[in-house]
Write a protein that binds this DNA or RNA. Structure first.
Lengths: 221, 221
DNA sequence: GTCTATAACGGGATAGAC
DNA sequence: GTCTATCCCGTTATAGAC
């Protein structure tokens, strides 16, 4: 989900109370699957911005233009089940963003730097709200909501795999590629944290430079 | 605050209900300043582990062996005011940890790596609970609790300053030192996130290797 | 300064009509 | 499937006794 879409969804939910009570034309795209999808997307956006504890089921329902009981209808496991599914959804989209950055150049150093710059642009253009969809929720619930921790670990592993594949394609040794890819994800996560908290994308831009340096210096890079 | 102290404090609070209701001998160290201090330390420990939203005033009072109204007595601004002060407290201690790591070697590359390894040990030995005292709370409340965001920014800036000073001492050019120091903090934050979520200190250990590489390659390093 | 008690509110979750 | 209404609980914060 792009930042603009998130903002639109939020605005619609806030301003569109009339739309919720008014009968919806049945020829539209508002079938069950669509409602379920809206709930997941709204949850993903809220988790990305506020994390798990600050996001109420009521707020999710409001943002998705649905009633709280609809949420429990589609997700009998309640907030936890929904959050897990939403995290997977957000993680997949974030993975596409990383893949887009990696694909921007055949040179692995430039591609890695491009990832950091892409995150910097996305974050700044969203007024420092659209960061990693996993970080806040994962840190908040580590050791206390196993399903979320598992989903977060899968996401981080997947992203690392994307980077590692790019590094290996470029001739970097598999063991070095794996380790370096983990460091790339660590750096992106940390720099995004600093950029978001400070309201300044310098950390992500510096990360781009230093990541490129690291990749260039790696064996067979 | 060390991990062992945190655990002791928690255990005391849970098992020591009798101690709370029993009259305390007035010759002890339980004066007002001490109670206030216990509240701050308990809050810092809980913020570090669970973040802001998951930490209730009741839980803080329990962990500090005090009553909720004592909390409001010392911190009329309520949870926010207390959290800000606790974050500053935790940030100062974390700064000492970083300084300890930096002081462990005259070589800036080894010193930086030592920081990452020190965090890895601290985190693992605390069963992945004692991470950065700022990260969770800062991410959770970014854009919504300005005082906390400000305290977090101050902490991150301070830590970066510690690293930058070490780099400059070693002859690295000031501009490069500043930028590289920011990247060091980014990497530590990100690697700690990955280590904590994954329950595996490999990211922090890999970060140690790659940070040392970066510092060695920096101009005049 | 610390206690007990409670107000005021919002949270997650459920029941049953339609 | 979606709505309205509601239950129960935990939360922040305050009041007043001691």
């Amino acid at each position: 989900m792009r930042a603009s879409e998130v903002r639109e969804a939020g605005a619609t939910a806030e301003a569109g109370e009339a739309g919720r009570t008014a009968p919806r034309r049945s020829g539209g795209r508002s079938d069950a699957a669509d409602t379920r999808c809206r709930i997941i997307e709204a949850t993903a956006a809220l988790l990305q911005r506020q994390g798990y504890e600050s996001t109420s089921v009521k707020a999710i329902a409001g943002a998705a233009n649905a009633s709280p009981s609809s949420v429990y209808h589609f997700f009998p496991g309640g907030k936890q089940e929904l959050a897990i599914e939403a995290m997977r959804h957000g993680a997949a989209e974030f993975g596409e963003l990383i893949a887009e950055g990696l694909a921007s150049s055949p040179d692995p150093a430039e591609a890695t730097a491009a990832c950091a710059l892409l995150l910097a642009d996305t974050l700044r253009e969203s007024d420092w709200t659209d960061g990693c969809p996993v970080a806040v929720t994962a840190l908040e619930t580590v050791g206390r909501v196993p399903g979320l921790q598992e989903a977060a670990t899968e996401a981080l592993t997947h992203w690392r795999g994307l980077v590692a594949a790019k590094l290996r394609e470029s001739g970097i040794e598999p063991a070095a590629a794996r380790s370096l890819a983990g460091t790339v994800i660590s750096m992106l996560e940390g720099a995004e944290l600093l950029s978001r908290v400070g309201g300044d994308d310098t950390p992500l831009r510096d990360a781009a430079v230093h990541l490129a340096q690291l990749v260039r210096a790696s064996p067979r890079g």
